[in-house]
Amino acid sequence: MSSFNIDRRNIDDLEVIELNGELDAHTAPQLEESIRELIDRQRFKIIVNCTRLEYISSAGLGVFMAYIEDVRTLGGDIKLTNLKPKVYNVFDLLGFPTLYDILEKEEEAVARFLNSH
């Protein structure tokens, strides 16, 4: 079975979601649940740290596709950081780098959110 889990932490008013393992159609509902829960709590400034994300399929990408508009409309963003090259390649195949804020390091995403006040 695909192993996947999510760790969460905060930096000031920013929400950091750390993805660990393999994100596919089996595990994507866990990510969707986390993002929906943040939106429900009106936490719209979301950083997804992918340091330990080993794999992503379109089911995982689909979660980002489904919620980015809502989050942006509400004044936030979902910024993706620390992607391994093999994971970045999948984002790239679908043209995500022009549609999403994908950054090398988590600190860059933090700085961007803080500077956007």
Partner: peptide, 8 residues
């Protein structure tokens, strides 16, 4: 698809 909030 993103604009229409489609997942897949």
């Amino acid at each position: 698809r993103i604009r229409l909030r489609k997942k897949g």
